[in-house]
Amino acid sequence: MDRLLTLLNENARLTTEQLAVMLNETEENVNNAIMKYEREGVIRGYKAIINWEKVDCNNAIAIIELRVSPKRERGFDEIANKIMSLPEVDSVYLVSGGYDLAVIIHGSTMQEIAMFVMRRLSTLDSVLSTTTHFILTRYKADGIIMNAAEETDGRRDLSCD
């Protein structure tokens, strides 16, 4: 049922019926497989990918590089847990390279994010330094090209010149 995951990853709004038809399975089997994936934590949620720039509302995103000192017993887990429990935080990744944690934050304004980094992140005990990168434009996110107009079908009907 790996193909089920691939299909849902591309479009989580396909109905059980459509999935069953495409996979040549019964609806019941597909339903059971989805429930099993959800139970086991393989599928962790469903959400829409929204181009907020098209919506008339304030939205700012930043990627924050954190250098932190790991704890003797728990390594990076303790600080990562603290950070991911903050609701403003969208994603937390432990990364290799010049810094340790990559944190993605959504806020209503850049100012709000700046304040959040200053007051909540940089004040955490094991945080050594932060570097904040504000996202200026999202061209593509989660495999989706944000500006639909750029997602064109270059094929032409042969005989229509």
Partner: peptide, 19 residues
């Protein structure tokens, strides 16, 4: 086939299943 393509070309938001 041509006639339909000519119509389709002049429309916006055409969904083609013809190619």
């Amino acid at each position: 086939i041509r006639k339909f393509f000519d119509i389709a070309n002049e429309m916006e938001d055409v969904i083609s299943l013809s190619i």
